[in-house]
Simulated assay, not measured.
Amino acid sequence: MTSATSLFSPVEADLRLLTENLQNLIGARHPILYAAAEHLFSAGGKRIRPAIVLLVARATMHGQEITQRHRRLAEITEMIHTASLVHDDVIDESATRRGIPAVHSRFSNQVAVLAGDFLFAQSSWYLANLENIEVIKLLSEVIKDFAEGEIQQGLFRFDMGITIESYLEKSYYKTASLIANSSKAAAILSDASEVEAQNLYHYGRNLGLAFQIVDDILDFTGSTESLGKPAGSDLRSGNLTAPVLYALEEKPYLEDLIDREFEQEDDLEQALALVRDSQGIQRARELASHHAKSAIEHLADLPMSESRQALIKLADYVLSRLY
């Protein structure tokens, strides 16, 4: 399977520069905050979100060099994403992140929450300094959406009344909003037309939804080693994702198991078996495929370039993670 990072060759040098800059941007005066943020950035990661920003920038600059504002937007995007991960790990009580101890595991919950808040604040400051009100609005919306997504996930725990539409809305808030709005912001910084900027918003939205749906499928089909967490973790915590919602339509006993929140021995194992024995995973694959194809369709009017091809291949890569 092609790796995500191998798709980023048109912006490989840009990403190297971004990684060097991230630690310089932290600027924390307190050593604990600095150590927590540095700990995160040094762990690496695929840098998918800033790579998308840089690819969109290059695809919409039509052969001209991208600007420092594009580069700063990519850095801001990664800072916002990283801040959200720190808070997610505290909420989910995840012990590790990217193969290393999570910030709250290494320091404390208090430091992790403050480090996440600090990164959100720093990203907001750099965002304001882009001095583009439309871009500021787009990325500010993302920070609000993260909070909305976490609140919805908490409210919907073990709630079998959740619809696929509600699930997609929560997935947009938690994952797709950042990709959609930062893609549009990159196009705006390139002085792209309103139509082109809106198409790139829809590219990011659909790509982000496909990415989240695939992640939710892998919770049932992946191994603990590949996932970095026990398989079935989402279901155990009451997070009912697309495979479960579809499985509920054909496996009535699954309702009983979820209703009692897997309190009896073997409840979770039975629930996982019922989902795997249903059409839930296949239907979720079809949903992910629909959004990945829609993402590609929204690139149709972009001129041919290496960066446009990379954006197309990235949508194909998201689906390839299933096989």
Rank of each mutant, 00 (worst) to 15 (best):
Y173F: 15
S190R: 03
I164R: 14
L168C: 14
N181E: 12
I162S: 10
D191N: 15
L189Y: 00
S177I: 09
I188S: 10
E169P: 00
N181V: 07
I188Y: 03
N181L: 11
R157M: 12
L189D: 03
N181C: 11
S177H: 09
I179D: 05
I164V: 12
A185E: 12
S166Y: 02
R157L: 14
A176Y: 05
Y172A: 05
K184E: 01
G161S: 13
S182W: 10
Y172P: 09
F158E: 00
D191R: 10
A180T: 07
I164A: 04
K170Y: 00
S177A: 15
I162H: 01
I162D: 01
D159F: 03
L189I: 05
D159Y: 06
I162L: 14
A186N: 03
K174E: 07
N181D: 13
Y167A: 01
A176H: 10
A187R: 04
S182Q: 00
E194I: 11
T163F: 06
R157K: 15
A187L: 02
E194F: 14
I162T: 13
I179M: 13
A185M: 11
A186Y: 07
N181M: 03
S183G: 08
I179S: 05
T175I: 02
S171F: 04
S166K: 14
Y167F: 14
K184N: 09
L168T: 08
E194S: 12
S166D: 15
Y172N: 10
L168I: 04
M160Q: 15
E169K: 11
A192Y: 05
S190F: 03
S190W: 07
A180V: 08
L189M: 09
E194P: 02
K170D: 03
A187P: 09
R157N: 00
T163N: 10
E169R: 14
M160G: 01
D159I: 00
E169Y: 08
E165A: 12
M160V: 14
S171Q: 06
S177P: 05
S171P: 07
S190C: 08
I188C: 11
Y172K: 03
E165I: 04
S193D: 08
L178H: 04
I179C: 10
E194G: 00
S193I: 11
A187D: 07
S166I: 12
A187I: 11
L189W: 03
M160F: 01
E169M: 00
S177Q: 05
V195C: 00
A185C: 10
I162N: 01
A176S: 14
A192Q: 08
I179E: 00
S166L: 02
S182G: 11
S183N: 10
E194H: 08
D191S: 12
K170Q: 14
Y167H: 03
A176C: 01
E165V: 11
S166R: 10
S193L: 08
S171I: 00
Y173D: 08
M160W: 02
N181S: 10
T163R: 06
E169I: 05
V195L: 11
A187K: 10
K170N: 07
I164Q: 15
V195N: 12
S182Y: 05
Y172E: 12
I188N: 05
E169T: 13
S182F: 08
K170W: 05
S190G: 13
E165S: 14
A192H: 08
S193Y: 11
A176V: 00
Y172W: 12
I162A: 02
S171V: 06
S166N: 13
Y173E: 08
D159P: 06
A187Q: 04
R157E: 07
